[in-house]
Design a protein around this nucleic acid. Structure first.
Lengths: 197, 197, 197, 197
DNA sequence: TATGAATGAGGTTTCATTCAT
DNA sequence: CATGAATGAAACCTCATTCAT
């Protein structure tokens, strides 16, 4: 009995989140009015508000779910054996980011920005970031084990560098649009091939 | 003759921009009302509006000036001879970013975010980004010339990687706060020392 | 045959009225949403609406029934012989009011207030008031007959005074809470013992 | 310099309070929308909101000032020597209430009602009530001193009776409209003339 | 010139009520 | 019959901007 209802409710929530995402991508959080979301979702005000308590809750929910966008990627990379080389991981990652950059990831810069001054949002974003950073640190660690990084290389440090590229790449891609996954991968390889003589 | 007056006007504009920046850092662009800015600047509504046509113009002006924050750094690094090693440039850059992150750079994430959907703002941000990217490409180029990158390394590619870290590092620092300049520098060095056997 | 059904219906109506009363006492007519009433009654929206056409009808029904709260008291006082002394009637009345003031009478001030500007509600309240006033006039009349008021005393006038105390006492009790039935009774007795020399 | 401004501000506040009062008398607190008040006051939304933070603040301000309506009456009665007889005080009081009942006092029943469930409002109302009660107790006390109440009469008790008539009379007058000041005064006299033989 | 009171469109949210299931 | 999801009008309030003084 609750099943139909629950499934229905879940579907409605997705519908609303998708609509909100589309609006946010177009106009940003603030310039998007709740009316915009109602229209995009094809629902009435009351309907939307029966699934989300407020606009902020919609944003918070989107934020909390953001990591789900990348989790499958993280998992699949870590599942491969032998370990994928660093630069190839970055290439794939950048490709994924670019693919999602007009869709589900389009709001990420807004979320990072808002987390900068909104104490409600910050913890949600931080939680996601820690997961991403842990992934890149693990990638660095495997790279070292595979002998493709010096034995005394610090995976935390390399991980920090790679992680730092995450947010940066999305922003840069959205604004400049001319940084290809291959370019980034090559850049990492070229950095790695230093003084190899 | 108009000089005193002009200086006065310039000072007023700085005063307003500083006030706006402080407010924006605290509450974000949207939640900052013009009244907040009037109060922070200690000026009347009319006074502020005689120096800036609109709130958007204040934001645009702040955005346009952002590059000035980094230009001296870029210049001084490029002026050094022999060229500063890559990882040291990054260390200094990260230190500068962290130093400015609560002050003049605090609004950068908001600007990047807004540029994502605001067609008026995007060109201003893009102009700044191109300068930054050119800087990092030049750094990569010098690193290669110095023999610290492989002769066939692509400075554009390495520059893209380094540039990508700019936006990323500011966001990560503001939200996580535990990535030191030294860690990033070490990460770059460790990437560079790969598989040297 | 329709009897079970009718009883059931009556019970449901009482259930709803009781729930509404509890909500109204807590938050007032306006701040009580129909949802609050659904929850308090443990019924669905549709269920409640099948017994009452609207929120206003619930309020009107409660108002119309208000006099039923006092009718048994009025009847029992008038049934006593010899007639109960004025001050004792007031003492008992005040005690009853205080007893009911957190329950069924809790909404009376809201009803009086609403009747002040709501032309639908006013006649219902006026009907109740006329009954109460008639009661107090009758009490005054008996008091005179018993020789405890001057022969030329006007029962209408004395009744008006006593009646006036009805609404006043409920409000004062709910807000101040420190006027005992005994104090009021004593006040009436002390008024009555005037200038006896 | 602030003088013009302050006078102006005070005048605007009065203008708004008067408009609100008129609306509240017509439709009640809740059915009166802020738009109604804007229209009645001939001001814009922003103008009204620059003088009062919220609708509730308007109501609270009106409530706090309510006692000012009666204070001059209280003072003038207590200033008279020899003391005005009880029934005459009540006559004058009832006359004043009736005079104000369509104007400044028209909202009093709504205020009492709201104070019943609104914890923000209650203290303001209680403060006013205590002043009124003290007045009536003083009247009773003087009546006793004048020998028109028995020497062992309790002014607190008589005061409570008289005070109770305050709220009651306003409500009854507004709803029934047929209780004259003279009738109440006579009622009190008749109560006082008991058993005088 | 500098002020700050005023504007009023537009924002978010609520809630009495209905009706398809 | 009963349910409770959906409706959508309307509420309160904010704030960028203007302009009379």
């Amino acid at each position: 009995m609750p099943k139909v209802s629950e499934e229905h409710a879940a579907a409605r929530r997705e519908q609303i989140l998708a609509a909100a995402q589309a609006c946010f991508a177009r106009k940003g959080f603030h310039a998007t009015s709740m009316n915009d979301i109602f229209a995009e979702a094809g629902l009435s005000a009351g309907a939307v508000y029966s699934y989300f308590k407020s606009k902020d809750e919609i944003i918070a929910t989107m934020t909390s779910r953001a990591i789900l966008l990348l989790a499958p990627f993280f998992d699949s990379v870590l599942a491969e054996d032998p370990p994928v080389p660093l630069h190839e991981v970055m290439r794939r990652f950048a490709a994924l980011v670019q693919e999602l950059s007009d869709g589900p990831m389009s709001v990420a810069p807004q979320v990072w920005s808002a987390a900068t001054y909104d104490p409600e949002l910050a913890p949600l974003v931080v939680a996601n970031m820690r997961q991403a950073r842990a992934f890149w640190t693990e990638v660095a660690s495997r790279e070292r084990k595979a002998g493709r990084l010096a034995p005394d290389a610090d995976p935390e440090a390399v991980g920090a560098v790679l992680f730092t590229m995450v947010a940066g790449h999305l922003v840069d891609h959205k604004l400049l649009g001319d940084i290809s996954p291959e370019l980034l991968a090559r850049g990492l390889r070229d950095l790695g091939g230093a003084a190899r003589d």
